[in-house]
Simulated scan of single mutants.
Amino acid sequence: MTSSLLEGLDLAGRVAVVTGSGQGIGRAIAWGLADAGCDVVLNARRINDLEETAAGVEERGRTALIAQGDIRDFSETIASRAMEHFGRIDIWVNNVGGSDEKTTRALIDTPDDVFRSQLELNLTSAFQGCKAAATRMGPGGSIVNISSGAGMRGSPFTGPYAAAKAGMNNLTQTLALELAPNIRVNTVAPGPVATEAFDEVLNTAGKLDEIAATIPLGRLGTPDDIAGAVLYLASDLASWVTGQLILVAGGRTQRTHNYTPKAE
């Protein structure tokens, strides 16, 4: 008798690491993986956020391990703690990203130190996470990088962030080839998702309806929209998928970025 396809979503007994899981998309990913049966290693800078995410993991009947700290140069520490506590790493999600700089500006007006900081936070940290994960995973491991639609096109006034995410997309493709057939590496690129970080960087106050109007499916994304794509890529349902970028953006692509809804 053929087993149910849904069994491919059962991740019971597996261990997942989710960086940037204190709130927003990272928290939704952590909870989604816990729903599927994973124990989850959580990372963020603020302990109160991590404790709230951990409580949600435990409410789902799974074990949460908190690894508080700035992700930059911290991936090896996270991986070591995961191995000490659980003895394995099966899934690693490089979700940390964004900007410590809350000012948008043209690339030519961007100070060098700000550009370097963006690369370290959004690209170098993912590179370090991939290394920490890949050197500890067994066959069947899955790495998922969280990129951005901004990394797929020119992105005026958020250039350093977009450049880092474009680099992440290539990093994914290269690692997928180098780590096959044992470890799969994929990317999820969210479109506009209404999170705390999204609002802080883009100052979206009063603009959400305007942004939603540029999306063919008619609404902003939610953290759960992104978590669903990650869950698929982390699961056995995606066992023949590697080196791919899935844009989760409500139909808003490079060609439809300036989409205008039809008049009623």
Rank of each mutant, 00 (worst) to 15 (best):
G191I: 07
T77F: 02
M1G: 11
D224S: 13
R252I: 10
Q128D: 09
A205S: 14
E51Y: 00
N182R: 14
R27F: 00
I47D: 05
N94W: 06
T174Y: 02
A234H: 08
T253C: 07
V40G: 04
N169L: 14
L33N: 14
K207F: 07
A44E: 13
N182G: 10
L33K: 07
Q118M: 13
V193D: 01
L179N: 02
V93G: 01
A64W: 03
A189H: 07
E210N: 11
P261M: 13
D73F: 11
N43D: 02
N122H: 08
N169V: 15
A263W: 04
I108A: 02
G228A: 13
W31T: 14
L6S: 05
L6D: 10
E7N: 14
T124E: 13
R219K: 12
G8C: 04
V96Q: 05
Q23I: 01
V96W: 01
K207Y: 07
R27P: 04
M152I: 05
D39I: 11
A44P: 05
P190C: 15
A106Y: 01
A67N: 03
T174P: 00
L171Y: 07
Q68P: 03
D90A: 03
A30M: 09
N186H: 11
L65G: 12
A176P: 09
L171R: 06
G221Y: 01
A176Q: 06
Q244S: 07
D39K: 02
D113G: 00
G37D: 12
S148R: 06
T204R: 11
P111Y: 01
G56E: 10
G37W: 00
T135C: 02
A150Y: 12
P139G: 10
A132W: 00
N182W: 00
A16G: 06
S3I: 01
R153H: 10
G221N: 07
T204P: 01
R219W: 09
D70W: 02
G97N: 15
A36K: 05
A180D: 06
G13C: 07
I215K: 02
L237V: 10
T174I: 12
Q173G: 11
V248W: 00
R45Y: 08
S155D: 12
G250P: 08
A133K: 08
V144K: 09
L9T: 12
T19M: 07
K165I: 15
V201R: 02
V18M: 01
A55K: 03
E51W: 03
R116M: 09
R105M: 08
E120A: 15
S117V: 04
V57R: 04
I226G: 11
D109E: 11
R62N: 13
V40Y: 01
G149M: 14
Q128K: 07
Q254C: 05
I226F: 00
G56Q: 11
S75R: 01
V144Y: 04
L202R: 05
F157L: 13
A34S: 14
G56K: 06
A150M: 12
S125A: 15
A126I: 05
V93L: 08
R46C: 00
C130M: 15
G98L: 09
Y161T: 14
N95E: 05
C38H: 13
C38G: 14
A213G: 11
V193M: 08
T2Y: 00
P139K: 10
L208S: 10
V93Q: 07
N43F: 09
Y232I: 04
G154R: 13
R14K: 13
T256G: 04
H85C: 02
G61R: 11
I211A: 05
